[in-house]
């Protein structure tokens, strides 16, 4: 029933379902960005660790 409420806003009609969609959009968008940044972060940390190990073993062999 709540989704059927609508009123006229400054630039056009606004339904309550539009508000829910936008709120959900904020969550989806920020979670999506966070997931991408987290994955990139983990890849950077992991590759840095591997490269450090390789460099240490090269130094040891010298």
């Amino acid at each position: 029933m709540l989704s059927k409420i609508s009123f006229l806003s400054l630039m056009g009609p606004l339904r309550s379902v539009d508000i829910y969609q936008s709120l959900w959009l904020i969550i989806e968008g920020m979670v999506g960005i966070l997931i991408v940044m987290l994955l990139i972060y983990l890849v950077v940390i992991w590759v840095n660790k591997i490269m450090n190990k390789i460099e240490m073993s090269i130094d040891k062999n010298r």
Binding site: S22, L23, I26, M30
Partner: peptide, 26 residues
């Protein structure tokens, strides 16, 4: 690399503005 999270967090304004725009009837 932890600066990556600020690069993500600072996009918050995009989504808030989407909400405000919708509330204004766009």
């Amino acid at each position: 690399p932890k600066m990556l999270f600020f690069g993500g967090a600072a996009q918050f304004g995009i989504f808030v503005t989407v909400l405000i725009s919708v509330l204004l009837g766009f």
